[in-house]
Simulated assay, not measured.
Amino acid sequence: MIGRAIGVLVSWFFRLLGAVILLSIIWVVAYRFLPPPMTWLMARDAIAGQRVKHAWVPLTAMSRSLPRAVIGAEDANFCYHHGVDFEAVKAAAEANLKGRKLRGGSTISQQTAKNAFLWPERSYVRKGLEVWFTGLIELLWGKPRIMEVYLNIVEMGPGIYGMPAASIHYFGTKVDRLSPAQAAKLTAILPQPIKRSVNKPSRSVRRYARRIEKRVRVVRDEGIDACLWN
């Protein structure tokens, strides 16, 4: 009897696992063609009574300085890795072991998977799901779509989501008209858009923005963003 009960539980477990896998694939395929209507962070802000500013703009209608800025600042190997940048993970681990300021090895693909499908809490379960969804979007979306979704849903301040909304909020201009300097200023507040300010940046944020602006030119001149336009 015990063996039979265990067999039934195992059978139901694998059925449930199969259903979860299938549903996650369907979810990812849907977001390949449809803009994510809301993220966990957007829902959190809306429930708290915070006005949510968000507008969807295709990647092709954005200033190219924006993806170049986030590649230069957040993920220089975006076009070359398959979701996880193992070199960045190794460098982050070494820096942490040496007692330096904590660094992350999270790629744009991983951040997109987390923002679009998951919650921000740090746990082994969420990290495992992040790796799973990262693999799916790399396989089913491709780099241009990953960048497009990332730029449209990334948190950019209290209640502000996506570069299009941030461009209007901070500079009063559409996202296709952003200059390299403006794109760099927006990117410089990542990954701490609540603590850092675009309008009143600290000295360190201003310095970081200037470095990012230089990286925009490097990304452009060296074709590091070629996967987005071919």
Rank of each mutant, 00 (worst) to 15 (best):
L97V: 07
I168V: 13
T134W: 01
K101P: 02
G128T: 10
R211M: 12
M42G: 02
R220S: 15
P35K: 01
G157Y: 05
E213T: 07
R44N: 12
E94T: 12
R215A: 11
K90H: 14
Q192C: 09
R196P: 07
R145K: 15
A113Y: 01
L151G: 02
G99R: 13
T60P: 10
S11H: 10
Y31A: 12
I26T: 10
G83F: 02
R207F: 06
W12P: 00
W132R: 11
E155Y: 02
R215G: 06
E130P: 01
T134S: 15
A48P: 08
R177P: 06
A95M: 03
D45W: 03
V198A: 08
G72A: 02
D85Q: 01
D221C: 08
N115C: 10
K195D: 08
G128S: 10
K185E: 14
K114S: 08
R68I: 02
G159P: 09
V218S: 08
S11I: 06
R122C: 06
Y124S: 12
P164T: 06
R206M: 15
N230D: 13
S123V: 08
P120E: 01
N230C: 09
F33D: 11
K53H: 04
M38G: 01
G83A: 05
H81F: 04
P37L: 05
T173Q: 14
